Amino acid sequence: MENNTSASYFNLTMFLNIGNYRYPAFVLCLLLCAFIISANLVIIVAIAREKSLHEPMYIFILFLSVNSLYGTAGFFFRFLRDLLSDSHLISRPACFTQIYVIYTYASYELTLLGIMAYDRYVAICQPLHYHNKITARMICKLFVIAWIYPAVAVGTCVYLSSRLPLCDNKIPKVFCANWNIVKLSCVSTVLNNLVGMFVSTSTVFLPLAFVLYTYIRIFLICRKCSPEFKSKVIQSCLPHIITFVNYSVTVFCDVSLSRINLEELNPLLAIILSLEFVVIPPILNPLVYGLKLPEIRKIMLRTLCSKPAQAVKA
C-alpha cells in the first residue's frame, strides 16, 4: 500500500453499512440530541437558579450536565450531517478536533465522577470534617485539576497522532477515534502506544479505581450503622453509583472493542457499541439525578409548572 501522508481527508467507512435506514436513524438521533440538550439544560437552570442547591454535590451535577452538552455538541452535530450525506469524508483538522472533544468529554466525565465520589466519602465517613475539607477553595482546586490535566493529556495524544505518516485514510467508525488513526500509521507507533496507555491509565482507570475504593469504604461504614442512616446513604449515593456503573461499562466496551476489528464480524453491533459512550451517559445523567434526587426533582417541577401558570395569568 502506498503512503498517503498528504491526504487531507479521512473516510468514515461505517456509514456505508447504514444504507436506506439513514432517514429513520436521522430522525431518531435528532430527537435524542434534542432530548439530551433540553434535559441537561433543565438540570443546569434548576441548580443555577435555586440558591438552596448551591452546594458541592449539586455543583458537581451541574458540571456533569455542562460536560454532557459539550460531548453532545462534539459528536451529534457532525454525526447528524453525516447521516444524510452520501459522502462521509472529514477533513484532518475536523477529525482531530472531534477526537479531542470526544476524548476530553470522556475524561472529564470520569474525573468529575471521581470528585463526586470523594465528596460523598467525606460527607459519609468524615461528616464532622466535611465543611473543613470540602471548601470553595478545595472545590476550585479539584475542578482545575479535573479539567486541565485531561485537556493536556488528550491534547498530547492527538498531537502525536496528527504527526504520524499514514498509509490509508479509512476509519472504520462513525466518528473519528484516535486508536483507529494510529493503526493507519506507516511507521512504528511505540511512542503513541506508551503515551496512550499512560493517558488511559491516569484519566480512566485511576478515577475508576478511586471511585471503587471510596464506595468500599462507605460500604464498610454503613455496615455498622442504623437502617435509617443506610437509607439516607443509598438515597444520596444511588444516582452516582448508577452513573458510575453505566459509564464504566460504556468506557470499557469502547476501549476494549477499539483494539479488535469488530466491524468485520458484526458491523451493526460495532456501530451500536461505538455510539454507546457518547449517547447513553448524556441521556441517563439528567434522568438519574432529576428523578432520584428529591431536591432537584422539586425544583424542576416547580420551574416547569411555573411557566404554564405565568402564561395563563398573562
Rank of each mutant, 00 (worst) to 15 (best):
L89Y: 13
L12E: 03
I181N: 03
P282Q: 07
I218H: 11
I36A: 03
T111N: 12
H129P: 00
I234D: 01
A106C: 03
P127G: 07
L112V: 09
N132P: 04
S202V: 12
C253R: 00
Y118N: 06
H129T: 10
L69P: 07
L257C: 07
C167D: 00
A136M: 04
D119Y: 07
K232W: 01
I299G: 10
V182P: 02
D254N: 05
K313M: 05
L273S: 07
L31Q: 03
G196E: 13
K51Q: 05
V249W: 11
L164K: 05
F210T: 06
N4W: 06
I47C: 00
L184W: 03
F219W: 15
P282W: 07
H88C: 07
D168Y: 05
Y100H: 14
L16P: 08
V279D: 12
S6W: 00
D119T: 01
K307E: 06
Y9P: 02
V195C: 04
I272W: 04
I44C: 02
D119P: 03
K224W: 01
L262F: 11
L191R: 13
V279M: 10
P267N: 07
P56W: 01
E295P: 09
R217P: 02
F229K: 09
L69Y: 12
S6R: 05
N3E: 15
G155Y: 00
Y103S: 14
S52R: 14
L28G: 04
D168E: 15
A146M: 06
L191N: 01
Y70T: 06
P227F: 02
I216N: 10
R78P: 05
L301S: 14
R49H: 01
I234H: 11
N193F: 00
S8K: 12
L269N: 12
L41M: 13
R78S: 11
H54L: 06
C29A: 14
K141M: 02
L84P: 14
M14P: 06
Y100A: 13
Y100R: 11
N40H: 09
C140Y: 10
C157R: 11
F60M: 11
E50Q: 12
